[in-house]
Amino acid sequence: MKPVVVDHITKTYSSKKDKVTALNDISFEVEEGELFGIIGPDGAGKTSLFRIIATLLVQDSGKATVEGLDSVKDYKEIRNILGYMPGRFSLYQDLTVEENLNFFATIFNTTVNENYDLIKDIYSQIEPFKKRRAGKLSGGMKQKLALSCALIHKPSVLLLDEPTTGVDAVSRKEFWEMLKKLKQQGITILVSTPYMDEAGLCDRIALVQNGEVLSLDTPQGIIDSFENPLLAVRSNDMLKLLKRLKSARGVDDAYPFGEYHHVVLQKNYNKDDLSDYLVKEEPGTEIISAQPNIEDCFMNLMKN
């Protein structure tokens, strides 16, 4: 039995004027003990998906199961085995770190001591501040506390909705380290993020856009499936360069990427075809071959 199965789920939100399809017939399965990433921009439907799996929202059609339990019928059982960390910090800001943890342990009918070994690594980092109110913690510490509270009842599946949004680079790195450790303890983790650079840290990822899965594979698998030649181009006038690239022959797509522009060529073209065209106009143009990453794959998938 797969820990999380999402089977043809559709969810629409309708208001008087229009109807928004948040999830459009989306399906995937998460393997036991896997760190599974849902990668997509804002509005892709990540939060709706997580809320359905977490039994907080009811889908229009389709089925979601957690450890074989149906998210609609068996929601009570699911709530005992699932840890959910919403995207927004949602612990009691006027209670202290320690009180929050104790409170959530109690309402899950357990105690902090019982599962302390599971959260020890994480909680020990914020333990010096246990008498501080949660609202007065820094963003990274809030994240750690929220993770501790989501883990306190030893869930077998952990849902993390954009856990690193609004967290500094160092804390983000630490957070992913913690997730790796949790994975080693056999917890299946489903994490969503809008940051493409975090995708490589997952075992498998699903690229999601407009409520649909564009691609689902290991990060390397997704990168390998990028077949077109990719170039990185730089010159003195980047704006003009981008305009010219977009109209150049054999160019599929061009977009800014750090201090370079990434250029996706059509399959039967190569670097030399483009360099002739560009260097003739502006001799200082630098053209190198680039390795695609998840972001390139995502841009490419979105375009097609």
């Binding site: 977490a54 907080l56 919403p86 927004r88 949602s90 612990l91 009691y92 959530f104 309402i107």
Partner: peptide
Amino acid sequence: TIEQINVTP
């Protein structure tokens, strides 16, 4: 905070 309460049993 109700979100976090609602996912508990």
